[in-house]
Design a protein around this nucleic acid. Structure first.
Lengths: 336, 336
DNA sequence: ATGAAAGCGCTAACAG
DNA sequence: CTGTTAGCGCTTTCAT
């Protein structure tokens, strides 16, 4: 392995100069910079990550904790993870992948060993058991999702309360007076995962203001469950004309079920989904939807972390991205 | 931060003894081991990962390169990644997540800086441009997928050739004489991703031996494309009674399209899928399928890497996992 | 079965 | 603008 002394010798400078050229932490004359860079390239020099981490107290790695459980659409996780990796690379950082099942111990391990400089935690629940550990950590962390008590923490998420309201208001604005929400599986609400609860809350509150009658139907992520829920809905509330779907996995199945029962979208039923734009565009008919901005969340999470690392000081904050509703073919004005 | 000297002092031993207790690299009396472990716990000691990597020339991290492109079912990637992380943890290793778009440079970076001890590369193509770099790397690597020239490399994959044959033989054994393959998007075949090409090859070869007439229909991963392909198939080859689907994303759509055209599965059409067992079980009707063993591939990949790291010597090999076909409700004996 | 001490390769004062 | 040097915290010979 070629090391910094080799490069220094080859370029006729001091090792520290090579280090400074590489880190840009002090001004170097264009001459020597070039000479050093040439040596770096010809020798194929790669600084040793461990040595660097030891000397600088920075590993240039961030941890990403991904959920494994149900209720979160896998493609959204992947999209988020990809966005985190890509953005981290623009800051010269790498990403260590952790699964949620390591829990608190995993966080303490990677932070305690200085394996990572910072942590991103996906899918944080309202009463997440990792919150105390996260607060006690000596490294910056950003949570995707907002716990009930976010004090001392940095959180970011889509504003699901506003998203619920936006969906309802869109339907109400189109004249719909009876609207149903087809949502996540019951266990997601029980577990108190913030996003499902918040969306339902915003949905209900807006309904109250608009004097729209609403009902909620949790739904497991299977075709059979989707079909059953649609049948139950149509039997129990035959006068419902608007539906909000907050469960990416079953969107297609719900649409098929409506078609099967002879309900045309949007002629008989208007549908709004909360899902990635890509999915909304591919559906037939294309879906009016509130986007799940996985890319933006990932990018923002990384940027906030890098900001904290650069400043060296921690400021608690929670950022809620405003929902963006895009009108497509699945919603229409209620006639008659 | 508490360091090894603190632990040593607290336990009344030398730092090296603490190190040996933790690594188990030499025999320690039960007495001192316990004393040291108690000190470790009471002080909350976590060895510094960078220092460790520098001194031992081992980072205890493996890189996982995941694909971003189309043609690979996202849930399978996640399942594989999860399995890799979980298995790596049992060997006290962590996983660094890389995306394919960093290409050769990414491999050289993480290997060159000693950030990782070993590398797992998913979705390797027949003529993958990373092969030379992978061969030249001074660290063990295992490829998921088998390139045309696998010399000097360690590869592992499902035996897709055998899988193609198994699917065809199952249908042929049930009396089907005309069988179609609905496969991956055309670009996957053009790109020469091994698995699609191999499956098709095994399928065709078995058909030749069995004197079954076969045809192949590439298919984009959208509902519209699936519907179009089914219509085309039924128009062009009305006498086809058996179908193999090798494209996880469209399985549901294909089944719906058949139903829509009045073709009952399995009464009119027998269907075999290549997909994760979980997906096959959830489909209605449940699908006779050859499993994509993402878990097992992930576990095996990690184990092979750990083996090489332990032995310190590289042996090239390619492991093909035998396909396992599970009969479910979607295939039946051809009658009439 | 345990200690002592020499690095591992780099960064960041400090010095000029 | 550049060089000198003292560590960063651990592992691992070499000793005993």
């Amino acid at each position: 392995m070629v090391k910094i002394d080799d490069v220094a010798r080859h370029a006729g400078v001091a090792p520290s100069t090579v280090s400074y050229v590489l880190s840009g932490k002090r001004t170097i004359s264009e001459q020597t910079r070039e000479r050093v860079m040439r040596s770096v390239r010809t020798l194929g020099y790669h600084p040793h990550a461990g040595a660097r981490a030891l000397a600088s107290n920075r590993s240039n790695v961030v941890a990403l904790v991904v959920p494994l459980r149900s209720g979160i659409h896998v493609p959204v996780i992947m999209q988020f993870a990809t966005s985190v990796v890509t953005e981290a690379r623009t800051f010269d950082h790498d990403v260590l992948l952790l699964t949620q099942d390591e829990g608190v111990a995993g966080l303490q391990r990677v932070a305690g060993t200085s394996l990572v400089d910072a942590i991103i935690v996906m899918d944080v629940e309202l009463h997440d058991n990792r919150l105390p550990a996260l607060r006690a950590l000596k490294r910056p962390a950003v949570l995707i999702g907002v716990p009930e008590d976010a004090s001392g923490l940095t959180c970011i998420d889509l504003d699901f309360t506003a998203a619920g309201a936006v969906c309802l208001n869109h339907l109400a604005g189109n004249g719909h007076r009876r609207v149903a929400l087809i949502g996540s599986p019951p266990e997601v609400y029980k577990r108190e995962t913030g996003f499902a609860t918040r969306l339902l809350g915003g949905f209900r509150q807006a309904a109250g203001q608009r004097r729209v009658k609403v009902s909620a139907y949790p739904c497991e992520p299977t075709e059979a469950a989707a079909k059953a829920v649609v049948e139950k809905l149509m039997a129990e509330r035959p006068r419902v004309t608007g539906v909000v779907i907050h469960n990416e996995s079953i969107i297609g199945h719900v649409l098929n079920a409506f078609a099967h029962k002879g309900a045309q979208v949007p002629d008989d039923i208007s549908v709004v989904a909360i899902c990635p734009d890509e999915q909304a565009e591919q559906a037939r008919p294309s879906l009016t939807s509130v986007a799940i901005p996985a890319d933006e969340l990932g990018r923002s999470a990384v940027r906030m972390l890098m900001g904290e690392l650069a400043r060296g000081e921690h400021v608690s904050s929670t950022t809620l991205l405003p929902p963006k509703l895009t009108e497509r073919q699945s919603t229409a004005m209620l006639v008659g």
